[in-house]
Design a protein around this nucleic acid. Structure first.
Length: 546
RNA sequence: GUCCCCAUCGUCCAGGGGUUAGGACGCGGCCCUUUCAAGGCCGAGACCCGGGUUCGAAUCCCGGUGGGGACGCCA
């Protein structure tokens, strides 16, 4: 606190915050990565800093250009833009690690020269690891069922050997002890060599903005490979090299990187560079509390886009998954999030992804979206479903399949569509709902739901009511909700029934379903011709059975 | 197994030495109502356990338990 005061008195020039999101293009953008990107972006925007997008494609085998495109699209969909990176460039490029390989090699050699690393000729396998435990045959870790579980009671003997049970298999550093002659011999033999970092003894501590100080005993840190024998860097080297070269000030990433951080801290020190600020954000879990993955269903943001969730909702939802403004506000626009965001608000415990709440956010953002914008978002979906009712654009004429009587009523297609959307809006959770619930208004032939017909349109009484309603509607001078409602209510009185008794069959007749927006608005929107026609046809279709 | 992180309603969060422990999603009920929603109101629902510090602990400390993550020439 006193430091903050001192700053207020005599501002220390703070470098512009530079944050980055550094996805590996080995898969689509999933919600966990999206949230990490979001937190970085929010903080950069909040602080007036720079948001860098860097593609970590050093794993040539698993990376692909398609995935890069997918990730970029996913970020754009959520509403994240980047100041430096693919497609926009920047002063610290290139932003693909595959284009920075020379730099990593240079840095790798520098580590060796400075004594922080050494050449390792052990090859791709783990040769030189600790001996296998006496009981473990095979050594295939992934099928560890029986042999990794020692006998419970008489396990004292397991602890006696010089390879204590449970010791992690760390590289035994054999190549670090090679004499210059031995190294020369191997070089002469052109043996492939990797560069391994020489982890010093002692402890490594770093400060984490969400977890506080975290300390690791270096004894638990392996002499990790920094540069592979094929000349490609490992993640640790490339990340540190780039974060240094790109002047990254804040590293905000998933909790799963905490155990990588001490290795990277060691690299920063070996390079003689100051550490960035670290903030490790909690992970997003599935309902089973395990790390979110494909088997939990949709995890790619593209999939949520396809399912019609609003990107505003996704951003809002993701922001609140592991972060809080400190009060009870939940609904945020993008600008409000930027204004409210702080690293202090990030929580330290993992969060379970709750699709139902995401859907609620989506409904809330739909409810708040300006009408014109909503139409713009819905249009491509209606077109795709063959339901777009306007020939060219809002303001021109209706497509042929929409009732000519609408044109007679001198309704502008854009206005008509806007009214339809407003009727649907409070019932919509996703953009797909507008297609689904709007369909009866946009087709020539309604599909009749069998259950609805059975329930509301099968009895002789219901059909008689429907016929009466049709006649009343036909007689109504104006085909508007305001005119139809009193007329139909009066009809109900005259027939000695509640209005609902008339309305149910009418609804099923005109939209084919038991649910719809208010029936009077529905009738008005449908227009006289289509509404009467549907009632008539319903009567004809059902009568023979009644 | 080893190391690291974490622990408030089912879920997401707020709070935090003395509170009727707050909000949201979901759930139940009521209101509104022509249906379905939306909206409004009400309700059920939580501080992991054990020690310690303290007049007082959900809150601070320690231990346990539980959960998660990491232990690659993947990122």
């Amino acid at each position: 606190m006193s430091r903050a005061r001192a700053q207020a008195l005599a501002p220390i020039p703070m470098p512009t915050p530079r944050l980055r999101f550094a996805p590996s293009p080995t898969g689509y953008l999933h919600v966990g990565g999206a949230r990490t990107a979001l937190f970085n972006w929010l903080y950069a925007r909040r602080m007036g800093g720079v948001f860098v997008l860097r593609i970590e494609d050093t794993d040539v085998e698993r990376s692909s250009a398609d995935m890069v495109t997918g990730i970029l699209d996913g970020m754009r969909w959520i509403g994240l833009d980047w100041d430096e990176g693919p497609e926009v460039g920047g002063d610290y490029g290139p932003y693909f690690q595959s284009q920075r390989l020379a730099r990593y090699r240079e840095l790798g050699e520098q580590l060796v020269r400075d004594g922080h690393a050494y050449y390792c000729y052990c090859g791709g396998d783990k040769g030189g690891s600790s001996q296998e435990g006496s009981g473990s045959a095979g050594g295939a870790q992934s099928t560890s069922y029986g042999e990794t579980e020692p006998p419970a009671a008489d396990d004292a003997a397991w602890d006696e050997g010089d390879t204590p049970r449970g010791e992690s298999w760390t590289y035994d550093r054999r190549c670090s002890r090679l004499t210059p002659e031995e190294v020369a011999a191997r070089e002469a033999a052109k043996m492939p060599r990797a560069i391994r970092f020489r982890v010093p003894t002692g402890e490594t501590t770093f400060h984490d903005l969400v977890h506080g100080d975290i300390t690791f005993d270096n004894a638990h840190i392996e002499d990790f490979v920094a540069l592979r024998s094929d000349g490609h860097p490992t993640y640790h080297l490339s990340v540190v090299a780039d974060d240094i070269d790109m002047a990254i000030t804040h590293v905000v990433r998933g909790d799963d990187h905490i155990s990588n951080t001490p290795k990277q801290v060691l690299l920063y020190r070996a390079f003689g560079k100051p550490l960035p600020a670290f903030a490790h954000v909690p992970l997003i879990l599935g309902p089973d509390k395990r790390r979110l993955s494909k088997r939990h269903g949709a995890t790619s943001v593209t999939e949520y886009s396809r399912q019609g969730y609003l990107p505003e909702a996704m951003m809002n939802f993701l922001a609140l998954l592991g972060w809080s403004p400190g009060n009870d506000q939940e609904l945020f626009s993008r600008d409000e999030l930027v204004a409210a965001f702080s690293l202090e608000g990030i929580s330290s415990s993992d969060a379970v992804f709750n699709p139902e709440k995401l859907e609620w956010f989506s409904a809330q953002h739909i409810a708040r979206m300006p009408a014109a914008e909503l139409v713009r978002r819905i249009e491509p979906r209606l077109r795709e479903a063959g339901l777009w009712p306007v020939k060219w654009s809002p303001g021109s004429s209706f497509d042929s399949h929409v009732d000519a009587s609408l044109a007679q009523d001198r309704l502008d297609p854009g206005a008509w569509l806007a009214r339809l959307i407003e009727l649907l809006r409070p019932r919509a959770k996703r953009l797909t709902d507008f297609v689904e619930k709007g369909r009866p208004f946009l087709v020539d032939e309604v599909e009749y739901d069998a259950d609805a017909v059975k329930k509301h349109l099968s009895s002789p009484e219901a059909l008689a009511h429907l016929a009466a309603v049709r006649d009343t509607c036909a007689a109504s001078e104006a085909f508007t909700a305001a005119a139809l409602e009193p007329a139909i209510r009066a009809l109900a009185d005259a027939r000695g029934v509640k209005a609902g008794v008339l309305i149910h069959p009418t609804r099923v007749a005109v939209v084919g379903r038991a649910e719809s927006p208010g029936i009077f608005e529905v009738l008005e929107l449908l227009g006289r011709e289509r509404a009467l026609d549907r009632m008539t046809r319903a009567l004809q279709a059902v009568r023979p059975q009644g």
